[in-house]
């Protein structure tokens, strides 16, 4: 009986969440610009025989979620406070850079929230009626420079992205929105933080990426591990390596997130 009650309460909470949807946005700089769909050649092809990924139209947050925004979320979802979070959902470093369980510290307010687990990021986006972007969506938007939607073959742009990786992660993070918006109107995809994606647990790349051979069908249903393409696309390869090193409860000083949502057809 008690179990049933708990269950009912859970469903009620879910219903509440669904009601409180929606992003406030101004027409000039929408908080979550609409991204047109398209066909895209991913570093992680969906299957060995399939080169292109079809991206459906979606919305993506213009900037990563800030500490301030995350603190606001915690006030209504206290089960995600660092002093209350279940260990199964976050490691010991979760929000460890904050001054107190609900206080990120003044200097952190405008900085992207980091030290968040995949579970916490997912919960945040769900609370906004949104979700984490999928890897292919993230990769599709992150391929854009300020001029081109797919700038991946531009050596100068590639080198510019790589420069972030040529700095150690010991300095403070910048505030969000500091980089130039790309051709999709999205900022901070490079040069600020790593970002969680919805299917972070589905990268299906070998922990030893040097293994290039095809599937071990005894381990995997289907076709086995994905082979990484575009071997010179270092910035993207590093993203995948980072995501595949992180378990869903792990947090890191440079791993944050932003949310995405589906675009309803006809709107």
């Amino acid at each position: 009986m008690k179990k049933l009650m708990r269950h009912r309460r859970y469903l009620a909470a879910l219903a509440l969440m669904l009601v409180s949807l929606g992003h406030a946005e101004s027409p000039d700089t929408p908080a979550a610009p609409a991204i047109p769909g398209g066909s895209f050649e991913s570093v992680l092809p969906p299957a060995p025989s399939v080169k292109n990924v079809r991206i459906q139209p979606f919305r993506l947050d213009r900037t990563p979620v800030t500490n301030e925004q995350f603190a606001t979320f915690l006030r209504t979802h206290p089960q995600w406070r660092r002093d209350r979070v279940a260990k199964v959902f976050a490691d010991e470093q979760y929000l460890s850079h904050w001054q107190a369980p609900l206080d990120p510290g003044q200097e952190n307010l405008r900085r992207p929230v980091v030290h968040v687990s995949w579970f916490a990021a997912t919960a945040y986006c769900e609370a906004q009626g949104a979700r984490l972007p999928r890897w292919h969506e993230w990769e599709y938007v992150a391929a854009a420079s300020d001029r081109q939607r797919d700038a991946r073959n531009d050596p100068a742009w590639r080198q510019q992205i790589l420069s972030w990786y040529s700095r150690s992660g010991r300095g403070p993070l910048p505030a969000v929105g500091g980089t130039t918006a790309n051709a999709f109107g999205i900022q901070d995809l490079h040069g600020v933080i790593w970002e969680w994606v919805e299917d972070a647990g589905g990268m299906l790349v070998s922990s030893d990426n040097r293994e290039q051979s095809s599937a071990d069908v005894m381990r995997f249903c289907g076709e086995g591990a994905l082979t990484m393409e575009q071997k010179e696309n270092y910035a993207t390869l590093m993203r995948i390596a980072m995501l595949s090193s992180m378990k869903a409860r792990y947090t890191s000083a440079t791993m944050g997130f932003r949310c995405a949502s589906d675009v309803r057809t006809g709107s």
Binding site: P46, W118, F119, G201, G202, L204, E223, A248
Partner: peptide, 10 residues
């Protein structure tokens, strides 16, 4: 995610 199982739709 809690079970550490990776999957991807083909």
């Amino acid at each position: 995610a809690v079970l550490g199982i990776q999957y991807r739709k083909l």
